[in-house]
């Protein structure tokens, strides 16, 4: 099974890269973008077949390595197959 993990900056944490992207979009004429927040997307191929166990494992991975919970939130999606 697969795990899809979205890692995003917490609200209130300044995102200078997001701001730069927003400025660049405006420069290209894309108006109407109020805010840009940049994050990471990580995909894992897991050997675990039990959904709940897989989710618990990935949660532990996020806490210990994949995300820095001081500044980042993460969301896990477990996908069959």
């Amino acid at each position: 099974m697969k795990a899809k993990i979205h890692i995003t900056l917490k609200n209130g944490v300044l995102d200078p890269q997001g701001k730069a992207v927003q400025t660049a979009l405006a420069g290209l004429g894309f108006t109407g973008v109020n805010d840009v927040r940049q994050g990471k997307f990580i995909e894992l191929e897991l050997t675990e077949t039990d959904r709940a166990k897989a989710e618990a494992q990935v949660d532990d991975m996020c806490k210990k390595l994949l995300a820095n919970t001081v500044i980042e939130n993460y969301a896990i999606e477990i996908v069959e197959g």
Binding site: V13, L14, P16, N68, V70
Partner: peptide, 16 residues
């Protein structure tokens, strides 16, 4: 900071 010996985090420089 990553190992938790010090608080906080070092982010990308404000001017990138």
């Amino acid at each position: 900071t990553e190992v938790g010996l010090l608080p906080g985090v070092l982010m990308r420089n404000a001017d990138l």
